[in-house]
Design a protein around this nucleic acid. Structure first.
Lengths: 332, 332
DNA sequence: CTGAAAGCGCTAACAA
DNA sequence: TTGTTAGCGCTTTCAG
């Protein structure tokens, strides 16, 4: 590993001061064309690249954004990461990613580390920490965009309209004249399942149908969870004609349960999912689902952050709600 | 944004020198228990966090690793990212991620940027650059692990055993007494399809069967590509009894083509994929495929890099071949 | 066991 | 239009 070339080396070679080299590079003050040429020549002859570290120490800006997610291997988050990447890339920001597994200690540790590294902004999918934690660890040192309702009103916040999405899916069945509609949710109080259930409930109520507690089953957000909870639903004396699911994996489990019970989808049972993961379009029958636009969410996070970082915006916390969209396929 | 607390503040408060604070933190020299206590108290009273930037400027180490991939939203790469993340995390390294879309200019730009930011190591899925580019931009400043055969022998290199995987899938059909086996590949010369085809060929040859050029179709690495190329195969007078596909998306397209042609899988047509993406287990029938262990690949990259970065290894470039594994499901 | 001082590579007052 | 100088916050000789 050879020693690097510094701005002083370039200055010496070009016969100017380091200041002038710095300014030719940044354009933050006038430099005569002749001098610029000399400097540029020295730079390319030496193969000089400024040290981002030294720049950061001086300017207090690192041009780095931290993205903190529970699991980067879960396909939802890479899509967010890509949206963020694309949104901030043109402003010269890069993304530092960490997976926390949704564990409190890891979430806190990662936040501390990111603050120590002076990232210019943080996008955080917080599962286990609260406002007090965030205030203590980050304070007002770094702008944060959160994706969790516990921080509502205290930080910029981006979310998908979960309730409206599930509402649309439920309406979709109602509009087909189906009224026996069940909901296959996630574990109580964890993840977005409850918000989605609220949308389902509202659609039924508006249609003059009471959502019986009986029509709601719960499981983990997995294929196996959906399979077993929906199997139970289908084994009843009066099984539902349709089931709205809290996410696509549960819905794929529902398809499996129907197949095992000899029930045909969509003629005997309509199935709707939520998220539109890649697999949704690939299963048989292809899944009707609610698009959860991860890419857009990442973009919006990026824009909120860039606004704060460039001081283009300094007002109170904003809430951005990204709309969902019903994607009708073969399952309902 | 309030001004940060520096090591000098802590030193002042604890009544010691910055040197001593530094050493209590790093443990790089003996500090008396009493002094340590004073320093720790001052640190927690002030909420001091050392600046990673200043540390990096001094020590020339950033504890950051760059991961450069064509598309972080493609589910294969996040799994690699997670493996890398987990492998280097315990050594205190964090991962900076960039998506290049496989474009030469973007790949080069990203590399330059990472060198300027003094990352301690680079993991690169190179699609468009060559050894000369890498030598010019990175030189010997930063250890690089590549995942592309054009750099063979010049950098540490990790790859999956593509040929062996496809060989195993082909053998799987041969062992069932099936000898009319086709191959649905990717575009010629792009991606791992050709290596996988070589494994397919070898299995046939070893079984005393000539692989006719006729038994090979090509398409993009997509579901639609697989659907159309396999549809053509199935429309022939003597359609194959099995098809080995260059990746899972093509294989899922093959399932679709069979369904459309009224051909039953696996009884009339066996289908095998490659990669074992999440969707492979979810389609109907579930896909028999070759596990491409992205997570492990990420881990191995991480370990190679950590070895280099900590100077635990300084020898010639190494080549790590990660084994594949046939996963038999319902499609063949 | 502890401290003083130098300097990593850069930028931004301030001065010419 | 350009240069001089003083740090940014830390680690590490070197010297007690």
């Amino acid at each position: 590993m050879r020693r690097g070339i510094t701005i002083a080396d370039v200055a010496a070679r070009a016969g100017v001061s380091p200041t002038t080299v710095s300014h030719t590079l940044s354009g933050r003050r006038q430099v005569s064309a002749a001098t610029q040429a000399k400097v540029q020549r020295a730079i390319s002859e030496l193969g000089y690249r400024p040290s981002a570290i030294a720049q950061s120490l001086r300017t207090k800006r690192t041009q780095m954004i931290a993205l903190i997610v529970p699991d980067i291997a879960n396909p939802y988050y890479p899509a967010v990461a890509r949206g963020l990447h694309d949104a901030v890339g043109e402003d010269g920001y890069y993304t530092l990613i960490g997976s926390t597994d949704g564990r409190r200690e890891t979430e806190l540790g990662f936040l501390e580390e990111m603050v120590a590294r002076s990232v210019d902004g943080i996008v955080m999918f917080a599962f286990a920490i609260d406002t007090a934690d965030l205030a203590r660890v980050v304070g007002d040192r770094v702008p944060v965009v959160v994706l969790a309702d516990v921080f509502a009103g205290r930080h910029d916040w981006v979310r998908v309209d979960d309730a409206a999405g599930a509402y649309a899916a439920t309406r979709h069945f109602l509009d087909q004249g189906i009224s026996e509609i069940a909901f296959a949710g996630g574990p109580k109080g964890r993840g977005p399942g409850d918000l989605r259930m609220a949308g389902y409930r509202r659609a039924l109520t508006e249609a003059g149908l009471a959502a019986a507690e009986n029509d709601i089953v719960r499981s983990e957000y997995t294929t196996e969870g959906g399979r077993s909870s929906v199997a139970e639903l289908l084994a009843r004396r009066r099984p539902p004609r349709a089931v709205v699911c809290a996410n696509d994996l549960i819905a794929i489990g529902a398809l499996k349960a129907a197949r095992e019970a000899g029930i045909e989808v969509p003629t005997e049972l309509g199935v709707a999912g939520f998220d539109d993961i890649d697999a949704a379009a690939l299963v048989t029958p292809a899944l009707t689902t609610v698009l959860n636009p991860a890419y857009q969410i990442g973009q919006r996070c990026g824009r909120l952050l860039v606004d704060r970082m460039t001081a283009g915006y300094q007002g109170p916390p904003r809430e951005v709600v990204v709309p969902t969209q019903l994607i009708v396929r073969a399952s309902g």
